[in-house]
Design a binder for these strands. Structure first.
Length: 387
DNA sequence: GACGCGTGGTG
DNA sequence: TCACCAAGCGT
C-alpha cells in the first residue's frame, strides 16, 4: 500500500498531511493521521455539549475578564476546587479595574489555599497592564493576549475562543487526551513539542461559527466521558469517529512519561511564643517555593541537635528557650518535594525591637488571627495539631 | 527541554 | 496507602 495524500493543513510553521494510512511520521513538521469529517464531528460534539454541559459560574456571562480569571484558576486545578474560590474572587474583585487597583496582599489572601501562588501574582501584574495599556479591555489578538504575564499558549487560546469566539486552539491535558485517542496519536504528551501536533489537529476540527462552544465541549468531553482511566466510550457522542475506540486502545492512550519521585527534605520548625502567647512568624523569600508567604521559622535539618534552629532564630533577632525534643512530626507533600518536619516549641526570652518593622518577621496576637494565608498549608497543620 | 511550582480528588 | 491526575506557565 502506498501513502496517498488526502489533504494538507497549515498552522503556523507546521504542515499537517492527512494520509489514508495513519500513524506514520513522514518528516519533520508532518504527521499522518486518518481523516475525520469535521462537519459531522462538530455536529455530534456540539449537540452533546448543548444537552450535557455543566452549569458553571463562569459560563453565566461572557465577560473576558471573568473568563480570564477562571482560566488561570483552572490551570492544573479541578473544577470543584475552583468554584468557591472563583465566587469569592468575583465578590472581592467584580471588575478588571477592581483587581487592578487591589493590593497584592489582598489578592494573595483571596488565593490562599488554591496553590501555585505565582498564578495570583502574575494575574495581578497582567490585569494592571491591561488597565494601563489597553484601557481596561482584554486584548483580542494572539500576540497581545499571549504577551500577558501568566498567559501561555493554552490560556491565550482559551481567552480568544471562549471570550471572543475566535477559532484558536486551546490545548490542555483534556484536549490532548481526547485528540490522542481520536487519531491514535502515540506522541508522549509530557513533551512540550507534542503540543504542535494537537494544535494542528484541533484547527482541522474546530467549528468556525462556534469556536467557544467547540473548545469547551472538547474539554468537557475529556472531563466527563473521555476520562484518563476507564473512559465511558459507550456514552461518547463521537465514538463513531474514534480510532482508539475502533482499535480498542483507548485505555493505553495518551502516552505520557512517568514523573520522577519527589525529593524528601528533613526540616526543623520552631513554634515560638512570647509571654502573651503571641506566635512568631517569618516571611519567605520573594521567589521560589511559596514565595512571599508567611511561615513558622524553619530550616532544613543538617545536624542532630537543634542548635542550628536556635541560630536561625537568633539571626531573626529572637532569643529563645528552645525545648530539647521535638513535640511532634508533621509531613507535608508538595508535587515535587516532601517536607518531613520536626516541630519544636519555644518561649521567647528576648526580642530585638527591629524585628517589628513587619517586613520579614511578625508576632500574631492570638490564634484566631492566623489564617491560611499568610501561613502556608503545612503550618496550618502544625497549628491544628500542636497549639 | 527540564525543572520548579500546590493542593485536592480518585481508583 | 499509593500513584496518578487536574482547563499550564516561567525560568
Amino acid at each position: 500500500m502506498s501513502l496517498i495524500e488526502d489533504s494538507s493543513f497549515r498552522f503556523g510553521t507546521r504542515t499537517l498531511i492527512v494520509y489514508s494510512y495513519p500513524n506514520i511520521n513522514i518528516s519533520k513538521g508532518e504527521y499522518s493521521v486518518k481523516h475525520i469529517d469535521n462537519v459531522q464531528f462538530q455536529s455530534d460534539l456540539l449537540n452533546w455539549y448543548d444537552e450535557n454541559k455543566r452549569d458553571l459560574p463562569w459560563r453565566k456571562e461572557n465577560d473576558p475578564y471573568k473568563i480570564w480569571v477562571s482560566e488561570i484558576m483552572l490551570q492544573q486545578t479541578q473544577v470543584d476546587t475552583v468554584i468557591p474560590y472563583y465566587e469569592r474572587f468575583m465578590t472581592l474583585f467584580p471588575t478588571l479595574q477592581d483587581l487592578a487597583e487591589a493590593e497584592e496582599e489582598t489578592v494573595l489572601k483571596a488565593w490562599e489555599g488554591l496553590g501555585y501562588y505565582s498564578r495570583a501574582r502574575n494575574l495581578h501584574t497582567a490585569v494592571k497592564e491591561v488597565a494601563a495599556t489597553y484601557g481596561g479591555q482584554v486584548p483580542d489578538t494572539p500576540d497581545e493576549v499571549q504577551s500577558l504575564r501568566g498567559v501561555g499558549p493554552y490560556t491565550a487560546g482559551a481567552i480568544l475562543s471562549i471570550a471572543y469566539n475566535i477559532p484558536a486552539p486551546a490545548v490542555d491535558g483534556n484536549v490532548m487526551r481526547v485528540i490522542s485517542r481520536l487519531y491514535t496519536i502515540y506522541d508522549d504528551i509530557s513533551r512540550p513539542s507534542a503540543r504542535h501536533t494537537f494544535e494542528m489537529l484541533v484547527m482541522k476540527l474546530i467549528s468556525q461559527e462556534r469556536a467557544s462552544d467547540f473548545n469547551q465541549a472538547l474539554m468537557e468531553l475529556g472531563a466527563l466521558i473521555c476520562t484518563p482511566r476507564q473512559p465511558a466510550c459507550l456514552l461518547c457522542p463521537v465514538q463513531s469517529h474514534c480510532a482508539a475506540r475502533e482499535e480498542g486502545v483507548q485505555e493505553i492512550l495518551p502516552v505520557k512519561a512517568k514523573k520522577k519521585p519527589p525529593k524528601k527534605l528533613q526540616m526543623k520548625v520552631a513554634v515560638v511564643k512570647d509571654e502573651e502567647g503571641k506566635i512568631l512568624i517569618e516571611k519567605r523569600p520573594e521567589t521560589g517555593l511559596l514565595a512571599k508567604l508567611w511561615q513558622f521559622p524553619n530550616i532544613e535539618a543538617v545536624t542532630d541537635t537543634n542548635d542550628d534552629l536556635k541560630a536561625h532564630l537568633s539571626a531573626l533577632g529572637v532569643e529563645v528557650s528552645l525545648a530539647k525534643d521535638a513535640v511532634q512530626e508533621v509531613r507535608h507533600v508538595f508535587t515535587h518535594i516532601v517536607w518531613e518536619m520536626e516541630v519544636y516549641t519555644a518561649t521567647m526570652t528576648k526580642l530585638e525591637e527591629t524585628v517589628f518593622s513587619g517586613a520579614t518577621t511578625r508576632l500574631f496576637v492570638d490564634r484566631d488571627d492566623i489564617s491560611y494565608y499568610p501561613f502556608p498549608v503545612s503550618h496550618q497543620k502544625i497549628i491544628d495539631h500542636s497549639l
